[in-house]
Design a protein around this nucleic acid. Structure first.
Length: 933
RNA sequence: GCUGGGAUAGCCAAGUAUGGUCAACGGCGGCAGACUCAAGAUCUGCUCUUGUAGAAGUCCCCAGGUUCAAAUCCUGGUCCCAGCACCA
C-alpha cells in the first residue's frame, strides 16, 4: 500500500496533541532538559525558511525525550515594538498574499476588521504560529505559550525592571536617537516600518571643531577628519547661504541656517540673529592646538545643510580644499602633516611622499570643483590614510602617531578642552511616514541597561566558558562581543507595543530589553493559561518568591500554589538550550546571558546556545516575509511534500550554513520515505535459518544506532540522516543479498530503525511502529547497546565488496566474453611477512621495502616492491587477517550471481596452485585471473 | 571599517581539527540500460583524461613554503557571504 502522508501525519499530530505528550511534568527520577527557541516576532505568517531552526531543535529534543530526559519545550511570540504594525500596514494596502493566506485560518469579516489593530494582529499571528509548529510535527507545549504584550508578561517585565533598578543596573544619560519633529522617535531600519524613505541610512559622527573669532564668536567646523586640524589653512563658508548666530549655553555659534534644526535638537541652540557671509569673511579665527590665526573664504562646494555649513580647509590632504584654493587663486601653501608608507607606486603616486591631495589632484588631472572624481579621490585618501597614515610633521605631541590609533584621542582632547563637540547626522535623507524629514535628537534622560558593567561582563564571560555552544567558534566570538558591549538604551517613546517603564510611564520598554528572561516566564505562563492564577495577583512579591526564593506573604491565598510554581522554576531552571538564528549572535544572545547574570545567581545561568542558519531562496536571497509568495505557504508545504520530507530537507546540510530552497530535493526525500515505507511494510517470507552474515548485520545495526545517536546529539543532522535513511538500508539489502533471512533478526532490524527515524521524521516512524506495537513511539526509549568496534566480520564484508568491484572493473576493461574467473589466495609465507609488518608498526617502526624484497621469490623485483608497499599500507592501518577462503566461499554464490560468471577459488596451499596471475596475490588481496573464451 | 565565516569537479555539497585508506561521501543535472500501457515513479551502470588486467596522468581560489607524502599544515594575495546597538 502506498504511503499516504497527508492523512497519516495529521492523524499523529492529533494523537500527540490529544495525549498531551508535550506537557511538562516534574519527575525527580528523571534528568530534566529545558529547551527553547528565540521566539519570533509576529510581523507576518511564518514562512518555511523559519521552520528550519524550530524543527532542528525539535529533532534534538525528541532525541532527548527518547534518551529518557524529562523535556520542557514551550513557545511564545515577541510582539513588542512595531512588527505587527507592518502587518497591518500591508493588510490595509490590500496585499493579496496576506489576504489569500488569511483564508487558511477561516477569517470572517468581523475578525478581518479587528485585524486593523496591531495588538490584535499580533495575537492572531501568534495563534497561526502555533498551528505552523504543530503542522511540522513539533512536540511543543503550547499550554505555556506567552506573547509579550499580554498583561501577565507586562507584570513580569515590570518586575524585571524594578529589580534592575533596585540593583543599580539602570542608568540615565543623554543619547542621540532618530526623531521625527512631527511624530516623535522613529526606528531607522531596512524594513522601513516607520519610514517612507532612508531605511538604510547610517548615523555619521562628525567632530565639531571650535574656531574662535576675536570678537567672541565660535565657528564650529564639522569634519570627519579631526586629525587634519594641524594642516588647516583657512575656513570655508558659502557666499549665497544664510548664516545665523545661535546661542548654545553661553556661547555664540555661527552656523548655516540650513543646518540649524540639528543644532536646535542636539545642542538646544537658540537662533538669535542672522549674519551675512560678508561679515563672517571679515573675521579671523584662531585654530585650536596650533594657535594659528587664519582667514575665512567662501567657496561654492560648501553644502550649507551638511554639518554646520562651516568647513575647515586642509589643502594638503583634502582634494576639495586644494582645488578651491586654486580656484580662488588664494596665496595659501598646503601644510604637510601626513605620511603614508608602502603605497609609493600604487594609486598613480597619490601617496608618494606627503601632500596626498596635491599629488592626487595633479596626477588625476583634476582642475574643477565640479569634477566628480574629487569625491572618489577624497574617499581613497581617507581610507588609505586612516589605516596607513602617520602624523609626522607639524602635529606637536601627535607626531609619529598612527592615525587609526590617535584619532579618538584627538577628539577626546578637543572636547575636554572645550574646543570641540560631536554632531550626528544621517548619510542620506531619512523621511518619516508622515513626510517629515527625520533628524537626530539628543535625548537628555534616556534610560540604559548597564551592560558596560565590568563585573557583569566578567561573570558572564566566565560562565560562557562552561557552556555548551554550537557552533564551536561562536564560543570564542562571544567573549569579544561581550567585551565590545556598551550600555544599551532600553526605553523609547512613541507608538509601540510593549510594557510601560515602571519608573516613568511616559516610556515604553524597548524590544531587545524585554526579551531576555522569558524562559523563566514560560513556567508561570502555563499557570496563567490554565486559569490557575489570576494575572492581577502577579506582583513583585510573587515574582520575588517564585524566581528569587523569597518568602511569600502576598495577596494570593493559596500559598502552596506559589510554592509549587517556585519549585517548578527551580526544577526547570537553568535553561539547557536556547536555539536562535545567526542574527541573534550580536544582540539577543549576549544580552540574554548578561541579563541572567544581573538577575539570577550563578546556578540559574543558561547552559547552552545553538546558533543556526536559515533557508534562503535560490541564489542565496534572504527570504523576506513580504516576498514569501515565491515559496510554498507554510501550511501547504506539509501537504505537498509531507512534513517529514521537509524536516529531512532542513536537516540535509549543516545547521551552520544557509540552505537554498530546492523543491527537487524535498520531493526526493519524500520518495525516499515512500521507498522505506514499502521496504518495511513489504511482507517477504523469512524463516529461522541462521547464516554467517547474521552476526555481521547485527553488529552493523548496533554500531549504526550508536553513531546516529552521537551525530544527533552534536546537531550533526546530515550525518545522522545518512546513516538512518541510507546506510542502514544499504546494510539491510546487503544482508538479503548475502542470503540472510532470519525472521527474528529482521524484525529487530526494522523495529530498531523505526526508533532511529523518530527524531527526524516522527510521523512515518510513529505509523510504522504502530503497525506492530500498541505503544506510542514518541515516548519509547532510544535503543542502547554495548558499543562494538569494527572487527574481522566487518572487514570480511568490505573485502567481498572490494573483490566484487575489482572483478567488475576488470571485466569491463577486457570487454570480451568471460569464460570463468579464478581467485588465488596468497601463499602462507606472505601472511608470515604481513604479520611481521604489523608487528613492526605496533612496535612503532615503519617497515621498509628493502627489509622484505630478498624474501620475495615468486615475482620479479619491480613487481615485488609494489606488492610489498601495498602490504605495508594494509599493515599501517592494521587491517585484520581474515579467513579469505571461508569468506570467499560463503560469498561465492552472490558474486557469481551478480557478475554472471563462474568463479573458482584456489588456496595458496593447494597443490594445483598454477596460473599466470597467481604470484600477484598478497594477503587480503587475492589475484584475479579472468579467462576469456 | 569592525567581527566572524567561506572559496572543493556542470551545479549543490562532504572531507580540512588528528597530512597518507582522496580521483575526493552524498545529492541534482546528464548519458545508457532494466521494468516493457503509462508514470513528477523505481532499479542498475557510467559521468576529469588515458587505458583489453585491478593502473597511470592531471586535479580541491592564486602564488610560495614545510614534508618521504598536502584538498588538509605554514606564509602572502585575490574574491565572496553574514552580523554590526535602541532593529527584531
Amino acid at each position: 500500500m502506498p504511503y499516504d502522508w497527508i492523512e497519516i501525519e495529521q492523524k499523529w499530530q492529533k494523537i500527540w496533541c490529544d495525549m498531551d505528550i508535550a506537557a511538562p511534568s516534574i519527575d525527580s527520577n528523571k534528568k530534566k532538559y529545558y529547551g527553547i527557541f528565540a521566539y519570533p516576532s509576529p510581523s507576518s505568517f511564518l514562512h518555511i525558511g523559519q521552520l528550519r531552526g524550530y524543527t532542528l531543535l525539535d529533532m534534538f529534543l525528541r532525541l532527548k525525550r527518547m534518551q529518557n530526559y524529562n523535556v520542557y519545550f514551550p513557545c511564545g511570540t515577541h510582539a513588542t515594538g512595531i512588527p505587527s504594525y507592518g502587518f497591518v500596514k500591508k493588510l490595509e494596502s490590500g496585499n493579496s498574499e496576506i489576504l489569500k493566506n488569511l483564508n487558511y485560518y477561516g477569517v470572517n469579516e468581523e475578525t478581518l476588521k479587528k485585524l486593523h489593530s496591531p495588538a490584535y494582529a499580533a495575537e492572531f499571528l501568534g495563534e497561526s504560529y502555533k498551528k505552523s509548529w504543530k503542522a511540522f510535527g513539533m512536540l511543543v507545549d503550547t499550554d505555556s505559550y506567552a506573547i509579550t504584550i499580554s498583561r501577565g508578561y507586562n507584570k513580569f517585565i515590570e518586575w524585571q525592571f524594578r529589580t534592575l533598578y533596585k540593583s543599580g543596573y539602570l542608568v540615565q544619560k543623554p543619547h542621540f536617537a532618530p526623531y521625527c519633529p512631527n511624530c516623535g522617535p522613529v526606528a531607522v531600519d531596512p524594513s522601513e516600518s516607520d519610514l517612507s524613505r532612508g531605511g538604510n541610512a547610517e548615523m555619521m559622527e562628525y567632530t565639531l571643531i571650535f574656531f574662535r573669532t576675536e570678537d567672541g564668536f565660535i565657528l564650529p567646523a564639522a569634519t570627519l577628519r579631526p586629525e587634519t586640524i594641524f594642516g588647516v589653512t583657512n575656513l570655508w563658508i558659502r557666499e549665497d547661504a544664510k548664516y545665523v548666530i545661535a546661542e548654545v549655553g553661553s556661547m555664540n555659534w555661527i552656523i548655516a541656517m540650513d543646518s540649524a534644526e540639528k543644532f536646535i535638537n542636539q545642542f538646544d541652540a537658540k537662533i538669535v540673529a542672522s549674519i551675512s557671509s560678508r561679515d563672517i569673511q571679515s573675521k579671523k579665527v584662531k585654530t585650536p592646538f596650533t594657535g594659528n590665526v587664519i582667514a575665512i573664504y567662501e567657496s561654492n562646494f560648501v553644502e550649507p545643510g551638511v554639518g554646520s555649513g562651516v568647513v575647515m580647509s586642509v589643502p594638503s590632504d583634502a582634494p576639495y580644499d586644494l582645488v578651491a584654493v586654486k580656484d580662488k587663486s588664494l596665496d595659501i601653501d598646503p601644510i604637510p602633516i601626513i605620511r603614508v608608507e608602502g603605497y609609493d607606486k600604487a594609486y598613480m603616486g597619490v601617496f608618494n611622499g606627503d601632500l596626498a591631495a596635491v599629488n592626487g589632484v595633479r596626477s588625476w588631472n583634476i582642475e574643477s570643483l565640479a569634477d566628480i572624481r574629487l569625491e572618489e579621490l577624497t574617499k581613497l585618501i581617507y581610507k588609505i590614510e586612516y589605516h596607513n597614515g602617520i602624523l609626522y610633521k607639524n602635529c606637536g605631541e601627535y607626531n609619529d602617531c598612527r592615525i587609526s590609533e590617535v584619532k579618538d584621542k584627538i577628539i577626546d582632547r578637543l572636547i575636554k578642552d572645550r574646543n570641540g563637540d560631536k554632531l550626528y547626522e544621517f548619510d542620506q535623507q531619512v523621511v518619516c511616514r508622515c513626510g517629515t524629514t527625520v533628524i537626530i535628537k539628543k535625548i537628555r534622560d534616556q534610560w540604559f541597561i548597564n551592560y558596560h558593567n565590568e563585573r557583569i561582563k566578567n561573570l558572564t564571560k566566565e560562565h560562557i566558558k562552561k557552556m555548551t555552544i554550537l557552533p564551536d567558534e561562536y564560543k570564542e566570538e562571544l567573549q569579544s562581543i561581550i567585551d565590545w558591549y556598551d550600555d544599551r538604551a532600553c526605553t523609547r517613546k512613541g507608538n509601540w507595543l510593549g510594557t510601560r517603564f515602571p519608573m516613568d510611564s511616559s516610556w515604553i520598554i524597548e524590544p531587545i530589553a524585554d526579551s531576555t528572561l522569558y524562559p523563566a516566564f514560560y513556567i508561570v505562563s502555563r499557570y496563567i493559561n490554565r486559569g490557575m492564577i489570576n494575572v492581577e495577583d502577579l506582583d513583585d512579591e510573587f515574582f520575588d518568591a517564585v524566581f528569587l526564593g523569597k518568602a511569600y506573604k502576598g495577596r494570593i491565598n493559596d500559598k502552596d500554589l506559589v510554592k509549587k510554581i517556585g519549585k517548578e522554576f527551580n526544577y526547570w531552571y537553568p535553561l539547557d538550550l536556547n536555539a536562535g538564528g545567526k542574527e541573534h549572535k550580536r544582540v539577543h544572545f549576549p544580552v540574554f546571558l548578561m541579563m541572567h547574570t544581573m538577575v539570577f545567581d550563578e546556578h540559574k545561568l543558561p547552559d547552552g546556545l545553538f546558533v543556526h542558519w536559515w533557508v534562503t531562496e535560490r541564489g542565496g536571497v534572504k527570504i523576506s516575509k513580504s516576498k514569501g509568495g515565491d515559496l510554498p505557504f507554510v501550511l501547504d508545504a506539509p501537504k505537498i511534500y509531507s512534513a517529514d520530507a521537509m524536516r529531512m530537507f532542513y536537516a540535509s546540510v549543516t545547521p551552520f550554513s544557509d540552505l537554498e530552497w530546492n523543491e527537487t530535493d524535498v520531493i526526493n526525500f519524500r520518495n525516499r520515505l515512500s521507498q522505506i515505507w514499502e521496504f518495511i511494510t513489504g511482507n517477504n517470507q523469512h524463516d529461522d535459518s541462521l547464516h554467517y552474515i547474521d552476526q555481521w548485520f547485527e553488529r552493523m545495526i548496533k554500531r549504526m544506532v550508536r553513531i546516529a545517536e552521537q551525530h544527533l546529539i552534536n546537531m550533526k543532522f546530515r550525518e545522522a540522516m545518512n546513516i538512518i535513511y541510507y546506510n542502514y538500508f544499504d546494510a539491510f539489502e546487503w544482508y538479503y543479498a548475502r542470503g540472510g533471512n532470519n525472521s527474528t533478526l529482521i524484525k529487530f532490524a526494522k523495529d530498531t530503525v523505526k526508533k532511529m527515524m523518530l527524531p527526524i521524521t516522527p510521523h512515518i516512524a510513529e505509523e510504522l511502529w504502530s503497525l506492530n506495537h500498541d505503544t506510542i513511539l514518541s515516548t519509547e526509549s532510544y535503543p542502547s547497546f554495548e558499543y562494538c568496534e569494527e572487527n574481522e566480520i566487518e572487514y570480511g564484508e568490505l573485502y567481498i565488496k572490494r573483490i566484487y568491484s575489482d572483478i567488475a572493473e576488470l571485466i569491463k576493461l577486457i570487454g570480451k566474453k568471460i569464460e570463468k574467473v579464478n581467485l588465488y589466495i596468497a601463499d602462507e609465507w606472505k601472511y608470515g611477512l604481513y604479520r611481521e609488518m604489523v608487528d613492526m608498526f605496533v612496535a612503532g617502526r615503519t617497515p621498509k621495502i628493502s627489509d622484505f624484497i630478498s624474501r620475495f621469490t615468486d615475482v620479479p623485483g619491480k613487481k615485488a616492491a609494489k606488492q610489498i608497499s601495498a602490504m605495508i599500507e594494509f599493515a599501517r592501518h592494521s587491517t585484520p587477517v581474515i579467513d579469505e577462503y571461508f569468506i570467499l566461499t560463503d560469498a561465492m554464490n552472490l558474486l557469481e550471481r551478480k557478475l554472471d560468471v563462474k568463479i573458482t577459488i584456489i588456496k595458496g596451499s593447494d597443490g594445483n596452485y598454477t596460473g599466470s596471475k597467481k604470484g600477484e596475490a598478497i594477503p587480503l588481496r587475492p589475484a584475479i585471473h579472468i579467462q576469456t573464451e
